[in-house]
Each structure stands twice: as structure tokens, then as C-alpha cells.
Amino acid sequence: MHIAVILKQVPDLVEEVEVDSQGTDIDRDSVKWKLNEFDDHALEQAVLLKESSGAEVTAVALAADGVDQLLYAAVARGVDRAIRVTTASARTDAPAAAAALAGVLADMGVDLVLTGVQAVDDLHGQLAPILATRLGWPHVSVVSRVSLEGTEAEVTQEYSGGRMATLEVDLPAVLGVQAAPRPPRYVPISRLRQVMASAELGSAAAAAAAPALGSTVTRLAAPPQGQGAQMLEGRPEAVAEQIVALLRERGLVEA
């Protein structure tokens, strides 16, 4: 059993994200990057499957600045191997990533591909269904638990209103992971250093070109102001009093 987990770095939204001078993209130089939260869960799910079923796990990322760090961290977390995929295009959208990854994953002979359910910076759809459709494999997104039974995966898919389903999928398949059954584990920095000193990253070159998107971004901007909240100013004690006064006025708490 060979599992590939696909990793992407996305802007850390705790920091400010600024729009570039053209007004159509973020200022990529000023952004702090981090592993996409859902990929972190996909990685945890992959390592849990390795531990429970002895599957072999390869972490895969498109080559870019900072990506090596991400791949070393995946090795430190427990994957067997990490490879970066080089492409002719600088595009990182899901259709481009799918074009780059499909051939590489097929050549690797993987049985199961795990991606994050979505990335906050990508307009052009979700990688899991695009990749699966290109490969002719089944796919399921918004998955929160995966187990392996022979040549099948059993997954939990989540819907709104607290509903869930258990689906069974024949392998090979692609799953868009929302959450691992337990929080992603923490790796001590000493372990990461050790991996960086000893592990070798592999690489592969993408054969297929990125497809045209058929869609152009004309503007990227903060959402329109609209109504917006009335901001309560002052020290915490003063703000607390204003909030309690508001609640009492409206009969939302006892006077």
C-alpha cells in the first residue's frame, strides 16, 4: 500500500495579507507562508494509516521557495519519503497542480492520494476532484476519517447540520481531507534539525503542461465596507460595561 500526501504552503492569515501594485494578486514577497491547515490534517491521517496498516507514505509538493522546509517537516512527522515536483510553469492553482501531479503519481504507483480539502488562496476549484478526474479514479472530499480494508478505503464525509456518511471507495482513489481523527502531532525542533541534516529529498519532473484557466482575475481587494460592526472603544473594563449595558437594554440577560 502506497499513500501520497500532497502538501501546499499558503499565506498565514494571522499576518496581514496585502494586495500587490497591480491589484490582482497578493503581494507574495511580504507574506509569511505556512503549511495549509488541512494538509497538516491530511499528513496526520497519512501517518496514522502508516502506523495502523504499515502503508508506505510519500509526501509530495510542487517545487517552490520554502517547500523543502515543509517536506523535511513531513519526514520528521513520519513519512517514508518526500519529493518535490518541478514544473515548467510558476502556477500553483489546482488545475495546474493536477496537471503536474497526475503523471508523477501514476508513475509512482500510488494506491491512495490524500490532499487537504481546500486551500484559502485558490479560486479554481479543488485539487482532489480535479486530480481524480484526470486520473480516472473515484474521489471524496470533506473527509474526516480514513481507514483501509484491503483494496478499499472507508471514509467519513461531513455535511452541514451535523450530518455524516460513511462511504467505501475502491483504490486507487483521491481523498480531500478536512480533519484527521486526532490533532496533528507536534515534532520537536531537534528532530527536525536531525532530519534536515540527514534526509535526502527526492525530485520528479512534471510532464504535462498547465491547462488554460478560462478565467482572469481583474481585481483583488478587501471586501466592501458595508454596514460593519460598531466598534466599542476603551479599556477592557469599560468595554465590558458597554457590552453588559447593551445586553441588558435588549433584555438578553437579566437586568
Binding site: 489546482a94 488545475p95 493536477a98 480539502v117 481546500q118 485558490d122 479560486l123 479554481h124 476549484g125 479543488q126 482532489a128 476532484p129 480535479i130 481524480a132 478526474t133 484526470r134 474521489h139 471524496v140 472530499s141 470533506v142 464525509q157 461531513e158 455535511y159 452541514s160 480531500g176 484557466l213 478560462g214 478565467s215
Partner: peptide, 23 residues
């Protein structure tokens, strides 16, 4: 853009060669 949408919008677009815009 629901759980179903996360599966289907991009999957069907890819199968039919259409552009897809999310969110």
C-alpha cells in the same frame, strides 16, 4: 459551495473541459 460542491464543481468541470470558479 457545500460538501457536495467541493466534490462536484471542479470534478465535473474537469471532465467536461470547462473553467471553474469557486467560493
Amino acid at each position: 459551495y457545500t460538501s457536495a460542491g467541493l466534490d462536484l464543481a471542479a470534478g465535473a468541470a474537469t471532465a467536461t473541459g470547462l473553467p471553474v470558479v469557486a467560493y
